[in-house]
């Protein structure tokens, strides 16, 4: 990593690292982390073994649904859940999922994409503009506004959902796309992160020189500040994307029309009918598999972006 990792082992090493270094070790230095510690093979096997067991715990439900989606409802009960049945019914199950009720599953998926995609994109932009304004301008009421928004971070989302439903009903927008989309556009936590990040990383002298060049305040934000804030924006976007995609309480309260359902509500609808009609078992497991695959891929790809702004900002605050 840098110069210090070449330091030789100290004489007073702790237990677990005390066996003598072999010739092979000298040729191929043991793996070292940034904290410069070294590890013995026994310790490596033990630690890696624990990590494997924990990984099994996190992945078993996903493995189970892959197996389950290949089975008929009969086999789901009649065969071992951790292994395939003789009759592989995957194609039939997935076809059923995609065509059932005029392809409503595809519609639910598209709804989720709409809510999460549009919602998180706009929410990130609004949070960035607000966070930047609170970080980089001195104005009356600044602390009051920030305090108010910070209070919003701590208010449980479900405490506002119920009165919001009553409010939206009065306005006639309950049970429409707007009723789920509008609340998704606000991320107090996102604004909080953007403010901290803008405070730490947007250089005031750069803004000043932009002003001297005659750029308008909005242009300075859009060209200079947004670019510097990109790491925080990525984090806020991902955070909001997952939050909206996983939301259940708000759409449950707002939506009565199944055509407007996001995928979470739709799958729960199918799952709650399994005790009446066995074919819903096949629909539920197949639907869960189809909806989990993109999420698993997204998480595996996105987790490396998660390190940045979110935690740095939150922890400094």
């Amino acid at each position: 990593m840098n110069a210090r990792t070449t330091v030789d082992p100290q004489p007073g090493r702790s237990a677990g690292e005390t066996e003598p270094a072999s010739a092979e070790d000298r040729q191929k230095p043991r793996r070292k982390t940034r904290n410069g510690a070294r590890s013995s093979p026994g310790m490596t096997i033990l630690v890696t073994g624990i990590l494997v067991v924990v990984a099994l715990y996190f992945l078993v439900p996903v493995y189970w649904v892959i197996i389950a989606a290949t089975k008929t409802s009969e086999d789901l009960f009649g065969t071992n859940g951790f292994w395939f049945a003789e009759n592989i019914n995957l194609i039939e199950n997935l076809t059923l999922v995609l065509t059932y009720d005029g392809g409503i599953f595809v519609r639910w998926f598209a709804n989720s994409l709409l809510y999460a995609g549009v919602g998180s994109l706009l929410a990130t932009y609004f949070a960035a503009a607000g966070g930047y304004a609170l970080a980089k301008y001195e104005f009356r009421g600044r602390n009051l506004v920030f305090g108010l928004i910070l209070g919003g971070v701590l208010v449980p989302a479900t405490a506002t959902a119920l009165p919001m439903f009553l409010l939206f009903s009065d306005l006639g927008i309950a049970n429409t796309y707007w009723s789920v989309l509008i609340p998704s556009l606000v991320s107090p936590f996102g604004l909080f992160l953007c403010r901290i990040f803008a405070d730490a990383s947007v250089d005031t002298s750069v803004l000043e020189s932009g002003r001297i060049d005659g750029a308008s305040e909005l242009k300075i934000f859009h060209t200079l500040a947004l670019r510097v804030m990109t790491p925080a924006l990525v984090t806020v976007f991902l955070f909001q994307l997952v939050g909206i995609w996983n939301n259940y309480f708000l759409p449950l309260i707002m939506l009565a029309d199944t055509d407007l359902y996001p995928i979470t509500l739709g799958l729960n609808n199918w799952n709650s009918q399994t005790d009446r009609l066995p074919e819903f078992y096949q629909l539920t497991t197949g639907g869960v598999l189809l909806s989990v695959i993109p999420l698993v891929i997204a998480m595996l790809v996105l987790q490396r972006f998660w390190r940045g702004g979110l935690t740095e900002g939150a922890v400094k605050g």
Partner: peptide, 19 residues
């Protein structure tokens, strides 16, 4: 370890309820 975070609570519960 991070994978489950992306799975909505509803779907996670459906999965575990089968288990």
């Amino acid at each position: 370890y991070f994978v489950p975070y992306g799975i909505p609570g509803v779907i996670a519960t459906i999965l575990w309820s089968f288990l």
